[in-house]
Design a protein around this nucleic acid. Structure first.
Lengths: 137, 137
DNA sequence: GTAAGTACGCACCTAAAGGTTAGTACATGA
DNA sequence: TCATGTACTAACCTTTAGGTGCGTACTTAC
């Protein structure tokens, strides 16, 4: 099942592999992107922004527990990857709006799908965990 | 700290919130599960196991860059959450097989969906990043 | 007059993730 | 006989994610 490296199981070219990205390869840039998207706050920010444009402090209030520093950093990561669009208005009390790019909406949906699944199946998971399901009646 | 508790934005009961899980709530156990699933190696292990049962060292070889320690720990996390089934045969060179539970297959599929999307759209992302797309001809 | 809100940057610090090395108890192959 | 593979654990160390607090340049509201 697990193929020794001597034989290439899939007939893909090197460039095709690079173009596609291969998460199993250690040095693949896709690992970085995955890290941003699945980071502790990245997930929550993406899901939050799926609901629409938010300002910085809106996000801060919505995502329970983020520090300002991490929120800023996460937004910069996601902006750098082309998932988030930052629009700042040069008014005197700062005003900045964050929204998702089309690319961001795409990942966001998949992340949300995962997040929703976990939320919905939480009690099953906790039961499997052996931790008595305290949510049960 | 955040969100005045005085106003409840959504008319859900406390038990419903607990049963469902709410990732935006700081102390919700779903955060833990999400952490395991979206951890650096958790993602890759889940995707790898979707292809079928693997032995420890098969996984180690397949997932580029994992240390034995982290692989073991990740597998224990996922086993603890009821996503992974560990079957050990008490033979003299140790033999252990890892596979997904039905619950695990469910999350795995969503994680794979996300992973696949990133792999496929990698070059668009890298372009958005401003990093010249080195995969282009 | 001052307290609060805005969107951060900077500096410092802790906790946790992650890596490295060694060791185990045998069996098989060179 | 020595090396290698197996599935780990324990001890130790490094790196980084993440948190805390401070400052800012104003404005609005109390």
């Amino acid at each position: 099942m697990n193929a020794p490296d001597t034989l290439t199981p899939e007939p893909t070219t090197l460039t095709a592999q690079l173009r596609r990205g291969n998460l199993f390869a250690e040095q693949c840039p896709s690992r970085e992107v995955l890290k941003h998207v699945t980071s502790r706050w990245g997930v929550l920010v993406l899901v939050a922004l799926l609901e629409g444009t938010h300002r910085f402090s809106d996000l801060r209030r919505k995502v329970g527990g983020v520090s300002e520093k991490m929120l800023a950093q996460t937004l910069q990561w996601l902006e750098g990857d082309g998932f988030v669009l930052r629009k700042s208005y040069p008014v005197v009390p700062p005003h900045v709006e964050y929204s998702l790019t089309p690319l961001g909406r795409d990942v966001g949906l998949r992340v949300q799908d995962l997040a929703d699944w976990i939320e919905l199946n939480l009690s099953s998971i906790l039961q499997a965990r052996g931790e008595p399901d305290r949510t049960a009646p």
